[in-house]
């Protein structure tokens, strides 16, 4: 499945979330089940499967990590499991320390400290996404290679921020 084609947008990383949202809304309207409620079963089925396809494409493209992965896949760059570039020792050390600090702050119920760590990581994620945009813009081998290792790093920042969300939910409940 090519989610870019499904939503009728250009196959590039640099897509505005608002444009994606608008495309999804426009295309979904035409296949909404209510529109075909009176129609023949076969048409209803087609409309439903198209609606599901549109939702899947939108969900995938909304997520920068999955969008980048799909783009690389469409360019024929293999991202098979176990083939990703190994994270550097420095990155692992940094992430281990960051996760330990977060876990300590979370279990101490120190919401302010959790937020401080989250702010730092969000800034880092934003910088990584900027570099990923640049790397994927060139669409040559060097750029694709850089994109692969940036993706690895982004999964670490993503996990960290998932953990932040879990602590926030626990502490704000």
């Amino acid at each position: 499945m090519d989610p870019f084609a499904t939503l009728g947008v250009e196959a590039r990383f640099d897509l505005a979330p608002s444009d994606l949202e608008r495309r999804h809304r426009e295309l979904s309207r035409a296949v909404h089940p209510d529109r075909h409620a009176a129609g023949p079963t076969s048409l209803r089925r087609v409309a439903l499967s198209r609606a599901i396809e549109l939702n899947e494409a939108y969900r995938l493209l909304k997520d920068p990590i999955r969008r980048a992965q799909k783009l690389l896949e469409l360019r024929g760059v293999s991202v098979a499991e176990g083939q990703e570039p190994k994270p550097s020792g420095a990155l692992l050390m940094e992430m281990m320390e960051a996760r330990e600090a977060l876990s300590e702050a979370g279990h101490a119920k120190d919401l302010a400290a959790v937020e401080r760590l989250a702010t730092q990581m969000r800034a880092r994620e934003a910088a990584l996404l900027e570099r990923l945009t640049e790397a994927l813009d060139s669409s040559d081998d060097a750029g694709n290679g850089r994109a692969l290792s940036l993706l690895g790093e982004l999964r670490y920042t993503r996990r960290f921020l998932d953990e932040v969300a879990a602590f926030e939910e626990m502490l704000l409940a």
Binding site: E81, G82, L92, M93, M96, R99, R155
Partner: peptide, 13 residues
């Protein structure tokens, strides 16, 4: 030993 799985963002010591 400090290792990581880039596919899922895991880190293990």
């Amino acid at each position: 030993g400090l290792v990581g799985a880039p596919a899922c963002g895991d880190v293990m010591r």
